[in-house]
Every structure is written in C-alpha cells, then in structure tokens.
Design a protein around this nucleic acid. Structure first.
Lengths: 226, 226
DNA sequence: TCAAAAGTGTTAAGTTTACACCCATGA
DNA sequence: TCATGGGTGTAAACTTAACACTTTTGA
C-alpha cells in the first residue's frame, strides 16, 4: 500500500482494560491485579493489554481475559473508549474498557496467582490506577441497565443455583433490597428459570431447591410485546 | 521521557466519527457527508476526523462536530470504539463514534455545503462507507434508551415547539405510533415542559400552543424515587 | 428445642391502555 | 362551508408494592 493520505496523522498506543465481574458469598466482586510493570508497578489496576498490530479490538479483550482466567468465548461488552491525554502517566495510551461476567468457580486460580490478581468486593474497592475506577463505574452502570432488560446475571452463577443466591445477586448488582415474595413471584412466571429436583444443603439445614437457566427456553421467547 | 516499556507495542491511527441527529418536518435525520478524500472519495459517510497528538478524544469529537456545523458545547455521547482490523480500507484506523443532537435551525448551512454535507432521513439512508451504518444503528439504540429515561429530545427541537412536534419527535425516535391523548396526559404532568402564551400558526389554521423545555425545573426534580 | 434459612398469597394503590368526538380557523 | 390539525376524559386491565407467618432440619 502506498503512503496514504492518513499517514500525515499521528498514531497512538491502544489498549484494552477488562472489568471482570464475579459473584461469591452474596457479594459482587471484580478481579483486580497488582500492576506488574512500570510506571506505578504494584498499584491495584484492571487487567489490561495492548492491541496487536493485526488484531481486532474485541479480540484483544478476549485474549486479555483469557490470559488472566483461562476462560474462552466469554461474552464481553464494551464500556467505551477512554482517551484523555494524560490518563496514563507512562505515555499516551487510548484504552477501550470491556466487562465480562464469569462464574468464579470456573476461573483458573493458578493463572490469577501468577498474575497477582485477586477478587475484590465491589463495595470496598481499593484506590485504583489512572481512570480504572471510572471504567468500573461505567461497567456497573451498563450491567445494571442490561440486567433490567436481559437475563445476563446467570453468567455469574454456577449452572445450578438457589433462588436466594439469585436474589442476592440481583440485590448486589442493583444495590438495593428486593422483597422475597415479590421476587419469587416474578421468577416463577419465567419459563426459562427451571426448578430441578436437586437440593442444595450447603447454606441451610432445611435445604433449598436448585434452579437452572434454560437458554433454549429463553430464546424461544418472543422479542416483542403484544 | 525515556523510551518506556510501552514503546515495544504498536501504534494506531485513531479517529472519531460523528453521528449528528436532527429533526425536521416530522422526520429524524442524520447529517451525512460525501467523503472528501481517498480512498472511496465521494461515498456517503459520517463526518470524521483524526485525533490529534495532544487532544482528548472527547475534544476531537467536539472539534469535528464544530467543523461541520459551527456549533459549540453540544452534548455528545460516546457510542463506542470500532476497531476491526479491516474496517477502513485505507489503512488501519480505530475509530470512536459519538452522537450529537442538534437543532437543525441552528446549524450553519454554509459549512454544510462547503463540506458537501446533507441532512438525510433516517428511514431512507443511502449505502454508507465502512461500518458507518453500524455506528448509526448503535447511536440510535443508545438514543432510544436515553429518551426513555431522560428528556434529551429537546435538543433536537427549536426553543419553542408544539406538542404535535414533540410527539412526532418521539414517534420518529422510537419508531412507533403514540396515542395522542395519552401522550398529552403524560406531558401535562411534567413541571419542566411549560406552556407559553405564544401560538404557532404555521402548521394549522387553528394554531397550536407553543411549549418550552425548562431545564431549571428539570434539575429541581428529585433524582430518586419514593 | 431452637436457630436459621426456605417457602408461600392477598389486597390496595398506582399505572397503562384503549378509545371518539368537538373546536377553531383560513382558504 | 368544509378540510385540517388542535385539543380533551373515562373506564377497564394490568402491574407493582406492601406485608408476616409456617416449614424443615441439623446442631
């Protein structure tokens, strides 16, 4: 390709940063890393990575998520581009933030340790590098909106879960208490949340029915309203 | 600054593309440009511009909007980053899309002409360059969501407007008919949509009351629910 | 036997929808 | 005088919110 019209314009480092959400013990959590290089090595940050020369930015996000968790083909949603001139004190870097919802039990804990990454509760985040706090806030806001329209929360749960777990998940994401009876009434109407005949005995003496998300049933739903 | 750790990573051209929405004669419109340079000169496209070396990306969006419309300090919302490897046939360019809502009457028509830019109806868009169609779809989706939560539509109208205009605007954005009486009932409850004592005689013989959006009253609203 | 979590219905209030006719005016 | 767009109310259906007690069982 001949030197193009474009070449008179500057170029920039472009990175992705991943907000990886998990859910454990009734708490919404984010996977944070002790930054492994200078500048500001050792500070709490999101896992990030530079976009490669011939790589789609969405792929860069998947690759970065995979490096830290071992997970493949996880749904990631773009939060947006962060491009203030001085956002990164190392050099100018334009960064695209993405968030992912993962089942903590499926994350490779060895990879986490190798990368000095730890699950931190959303309600008590440490001070974070650069604009990473804003990125997390942006991601949470998107997640709240999404969960009001689509059943995305199930990615944060194991395949079988109790209604109490599900309710705690919604409470953690939305940041507010929900009435137990009203919550269960709403769930009971949804054809894609199925009761199994299995019982969870870990969290109560009585035991709680385990449910499963049936995505086939979900996709059969009409996507318009009468 | 010494050559940093970052410098081993590639750099990219980064651009912004602006989806500029307007509203005229009951139609939602976008300002499109005949592309003024190669490759693919002359094709319909969004107005774009490269980010400058020491410029925030949000500023690049404002600057690009201003070049084409003469408008300053318009609220712009980021749609997202578009970064597929081959999205631009000229060279690799990562582009951040932004949308703006403007009052067509306030746009500098001379600047439009100088830049070969024209208002096109959203319902009959021509074929567009690269991924610009996706950008517009993303912007429309964001706009629909926003308008369900905040009174953003007023930026598309002149300072004084009739209820019929307002209703047509909502119908154009949402893509569906709204019942006139129900619409007016909802509007009549809102303290920040004020009836003036002026009458518009342009669109009907009888004349229609002109209303105004009072943003002071809007900002007095509590931002939580009881 | 008792502490801890699971499970279960009803009613009132509020919101949304559907629907049709008269009004004022300029051409 | 009539064609055009402006303006108005009510009832039924549906949705949401508030609320408290009984069940099961392991320690």
């Amino acid at each position: 390709m001949p030197p193009s019209f474009y070449s008179q314009y500057p170029k920039f480092h472009v990175a992705v940063d991943c907000i990886i959400f998990g859910f454990e013990k009734g708490q919404l959590k984010v996977l944070l890393q002790k930054r492994p290089f200078e500048p500001r090595q050792g500070e709490w940050s999101l896992m990030g990575g530079f976009v490669k020369r011939d790589e789609d930015i969405d792929h860069a996000a998947q690759r970065t998520l995979n490096q830290l968790t071992g997970l493949h083909d996880i749904y990631m949603k773009q939060v947006g581009a962060f491009g203030s001139v001085n956002r990164d004190s190392g050099d100018r870097v334009i960064s695209i933030a993405y968030f992912a919802l993962v089942d903590i039990e499926r994350v490779n804990a060895d990879l986490n340790h190798e990368n000095s990454a730890y699950w931190e509760e959303m309600t008590q985040l440490p001070p974070l590098l650069f604009d990473h706090k804003e990125m997390i806030e942006g991601a949470l806001k998107k997640l709240r909106t999404m969960i009001g329209h689509q059943p995305v929360g199930f990615s944060l749960l194991p395949p079988l879960f109790t209604l109490t777990q599900l309710q705690m998940l919604y409470e953690a994401i939305l940041g507010e208490k929900i009435d137990k009876r009203n919550f269960r009434k709403r769930v009971s109407v949804l054809p894609y949340i199925e009761k199994t005949d299995q019982i969870d005995k870990l969290t109560s003496k009585r035991g709680a029915a385990l449910y499963r998300f049936n995505d086939v049933a979900y996709n059969l739903e009409p996507n318009f309203k009468l």
